[in-house]
Amino acid sequence: MIQVLLFARIQDEVGQERLEADFAGKSIKELKRWVEDNYAVSSLTRTMTAVNEEFAADEDQLKEGDTVAFIPPVSGG
């Protein structure tokens, strides 16, 4: 299983702080599409993604046990 952490607007739209998805061997792009198709979430195209706390590309493959976080544009400071 892949843990998917949600923050800020994405968290509010989905109504959950995390999801679980059976996406080992698939790409981040496919995971994004699945979330968009299954939850009332606005487009994730511009959303950055971290895998195990490091920024990752949409083409990167996920593996069993990964923790993915969708990182909408940040606004700290």
Partner: peptide, 29 residues
């Protein structure tokens, strides 16, 4: 750099509603 890349998000509670802010550069967000 904090505004560009640190995963921290600000939610505004305005008089007339709430809004997650986020476009890295404050001038446009």
């Amino acid at each position: 750099r904090i505004k560009e890349m640190v995963p921290i998000w600000k939610k505004e509670f305005w008089e007339d509603g709430t809004q997650w802010i986020g476009d890295q550069l404050e001038e446009t967000s």
